[in-house]
Structure formats: structure tokens, C-alpha cells
Design a protein around this nucleic acid. Sequence first.
RNA 1: UGCCCGAUAGUAUAAAGGUAGUACAACGGUUUUUGGUACCGUUUGUCUAGGUUCGAAUCCUGGUCGGGCAACCA
Length: 555
Amino acid sequence: MSEERSLNFLEEIVEEDIAAGKNGGRVLTRFPPEPNGYLHIGHAKSICLNFGLAQKYNGKTNLRFDDTNPTKEETEYVDSIKDDVKWLGFEWANELYASDYFDQIYEFAVALIKKGLAYVDDSSAEEIAAQKGTPTEPGTPNQYRSRSVEENLQLFADMKAGKYPDGAKVLRAKVDLAAPNMHLRDPLMYRIKHAHHHRTGDKWCIYPMYDFAHGQSDAIEQITHSICTLEFIPHRALYDWFIEQLELFPSKQYEFARLNLNYTVMSKRKLLQLVTEGHVEGWDDPRMPTISGLRRRGYTPASIREFCERIGVAKRENMIDVGLLEFCIREDLNKTAWRRMAVLDPIKCILTNYPEGETEIMHGENNPEVEGGDGSREFPFSRELWIEREDFMEVPPKKFFRLGVGLMVRLKNAYIIKCDDFVKDADGNITEIHCSYLPESKSGHDTSGINVKGTIHWISVPHAKTAEVRLYDRLFQVENPQNEDGDFKDYLNPNSLQILPTAYIEPDLANATPGKPVQFMRKGYFTLDKYSTADKLVFNRTVTLKDGWKSPPTP
RNA sequence: UGCCCGAUAGUAUAAAGGUAGUACAACGGUUUUUGGUACCGUUUGUCUAGGUUCGAAUCCUGGUCGGGCAACCA
């Protein structure tokens, strides 16, 4: 606890609690997702916070599914959530479910009824809403509020027994209908839902509301620090009230500002819409801000953890620039990804003075950032090469360190070449570039004495393998789609996915596997798509390289 | 117009009454067989008006702005 980095407000709270001897210095947090969707980068922040806090203070973290609404929750989501948390690199102490506590929570409700602090209300949802009043006017009690304990006990038991249809009755806490905090105006504790639950099946037809399940689950598990997002601040008074009335373990709730990332959306509802309406391929579409999408895109767990560390945590609303996420993945991949060559937008380059039919084997280190290059690989060189179309210009501007008639570049790990000529087809498209190579300039044995500014990547035509390459851009055209007028989907970026059906890659790339990052030199970081096949290799671009080259303004 | 939370460079986040710092971004430069990396440098900030104090980003009061709260969602 002696690092230079200053503490965030949650760490301060924990350290104060430990110093005060609260809970005997014990720290137990929980990550409590509702299994109604896939986890996204915003959840990653919460995961890193909860697990990180526990790790730092020798505590533990439970994974608890907040599964109190059977109509929205599915086992598929439970499984994906577990995968994602594990993939991020965290281990939970216990895998738990709010539904594990349904019996206990039911008994808590009975106890509250017995204390005269809960009652069965026959009113409709609309009536209850009306009777709650408004923020400026107090609510008004109805005739059900004064039901006897005995009657409430019987009615609640009947609710549980399935004697009433959905919506016929609810159980409410008797708190304060005039409270300035609307959440205290006799909040609902239980509602009737004749629905199949993914874990408890048809055992229950009444289910506790969030406010009567979350804090109770925390208390049952003896969670010391229950960390949630800002919108739950008004719930805290209720959280404390239930715990106090039921005399449970006094878990404490603390709130932080959720993550917002620009050029994307983060609500599960909106993400679900993108999936169901086919705007993306699925929850794991590489453009999605989901953990599974980021994973498929090529993001590493370490980069996401680093991102969560860097964004910090506070109580003010924030909008983080995706540029920071991209910085984090580049920083990680620069140190770990092997370098390979791939030509994404090919044009043929012929070395007119290189013998036809000859092949040389060139060598390149795997990663110059690693001591010794992290080993090396071989790749063939020949008379005909694929090079990047953008590496040639018919009329090159000043400081264009690539090809143009009369200009020289180095072919990475090979020879220096000089551009002599180019060929156009009938439509005026450039189809071939003719160069001559300098035999004495071979990498490692260069006696030419010539220094060139530019180095370009290339692939030998007869040895090239092909792959499909998918380039991704931000999903939305505006920074904050949900703040714009109209439907957020009106602001989808039509060019968020660009498919290059035929890119040429060096032979060694046949060994690529999903999740193993590779840098296509000068083009960015890529990873093999999880649905790629040996027949048809598909690479996803994780992120571009930072590009310092700015073409001069064209007058 | 009730209650609650918040306000520090473009974006985040520190400074617990005592030099406003860090990161990302932007811009310039050095190095470079990736216009990458690394390294060096530059620009940019305490919402506002009062008050307390020797001294205020910090404490107090008013205002302004942003967000949240009246789901049988979590």
C-alpha cells in the first residue's frame, strides 16, 4: 500500500474501514450481473473495480447472478458471463445466484409483515403509481395499507401458493408515503409472475424485486462493500432500511460513475436491438463493445484491464475517448505481437532486372521490441511482388517516402528498389509497376552505401497465400448516439465494416490462430477470426498502427 | 418546481487549507530497414459571485450548468 499512485475514492473508503477495524479488516465484494445479456466494456470497469479492490486488500469477490426476473433471463447469458469474467483474468470465490436465496428472502418478507412493515396491496400498477404522488406532492395511503398482520400473512401465502394471476396483488414495504425520496414511498417487494425461471423452474410464482433481493443477498453473503453505479444512489436509503429492519449483516452500498465510451452505445437494451435487428453479426461482432466482441476483434485481457485502470473511477459523469482503449491495445500488442507482412490492397511490382524463375529466402525477426527479435521466420522473394497500392503515386507529393517514377525504397528485409516505370490499362488504372533492384543492397549485406527514407512491405507473387481481411471502424458516426434526435440507429456508421476479399499474406501466416495477435507491418494489428477456416482464412483488424504520416494538403 | 449526486486542460484523473500534477489526444523535434516503437519538447485547466483565512481547486453561502429519482426492470 505504499505505491506512488494516489488512491481512488473507493480505495480510500476501504482503507478507512480497515484502519477502523470494521468487519475485522475483511473485504468481500461481489460482481452482480443480471443474466439478461452479454457483458460489455462497462461491465469490465465494474469487474476490475470489484475484483481489483478485493485483490488489493486481501479480500475476495463473489460472482452473483441477480436473477430475480425470470422473463428476461437465460442460461445462455449466465454461461457467457462466466466465460467473459474468466477470460478477463479474474477468479470468483463463489458462484452464487439471488435465486439461491428465494426461500430466505421469502422468510424476510414474512418477518417484515409480522413487524407490521409490509402489506399486500390489490391495486393495479397504475393505481399504485398514482397513489405514490409526485416528487412535489406526497403520496396517499389506500385501504390496503391498514390490513392486519394476519390478513397480510394469509394473502402473501396465497400469493406464493399461486392463487392469484399476474398483477393481481403485490407485497409492499410500509415505509413513508410522504418521503421526498420516491423510492421510500412504500416500494414493491414482491410481484406475481407465473413464469418459468432458468434455475428454480416452476417452484415460484412470486419473485422479489431488485430492492428486496439485492441488499438481502449482499447481507446473506456478508458482502462488506457493495459497489454499484450512480443511478442506484436513491436506492441506498431503502437498501439500509431493509437491512436495519431485518437486522441483517450491515453491507454498505457505494456508487461510482459508469463508463461511457464515445462512438458506441453501452445499454444492454440497445445492444440487444443491434443484434436482433441484424445491424451487427451478433453479440460477438468485432464492432460491438461487448467483451466477446472485443475478444473476437483481438483485444487482450491485459489491455482491457489496463484501460480500466487508466480511466480511473469517480462519481462524475464521464465520456471516455475510444482513443484510450486503442492506445491500451497498441501498447500491449506492440510488445507481444509477431510481425508479418500482408498486402491488403495489392498492385503488382515487377523487378525487371531480377532473374525470372529465381527465388531467394529472406529472414525477418518476429518482434523488434523483444531482445533478440523473439526469433525469426523465413519468406520467399522473387521477381514479381505484390505491394500496397497506396505505396505508389503517379504524381508523388513532396516528402512522399515511397514509390513514384525515379524514387527508391527499401523492400522490408530485402533489397532497395528504384521505380522506373508503370503500366496503365485502357481505363487509366495503374496495373503494374516496374522497378529495378540493387543487388548489393540486400538486407544484412548492404554494401550499396545508399540510404533510403522509406521501407515498404511486400509479398512474393508465386508464393503468396490469400486471406479475407476485415477492417473495422467505429460503429456510430457521432460521439454520443443516444443524445441525438431520433433513433440512435439512425447514426450507425455505414462503413463500420470493410471486407477485403483478397489480401496476400506471407506463408507463415497459415499458422495463425484466433486470439493470437499479429502485426501486419505498417498496417495494424490483426487476429484470425474465430470463424475462420483452413480453406478461407479471415483476419480481423484489431486496431490500426498510429499513423504519423499526413499527406500534404492538395491545393 | 421536491429530493439526491456532481462540476479541475479537448478527454479522463490527482492535489485531504500551502508550487495545480499525471495519462491519453493534439502539435514540433531526435532516432529508426514499420511515416510503428522509443526518447525529447510545446500548447491547453480549477463553472460563477460572494464569504472564512496569512493563504482556497479544497471549507461556507447563493447562483449556473450537467446527471439521476415517481418500472409489478435491474
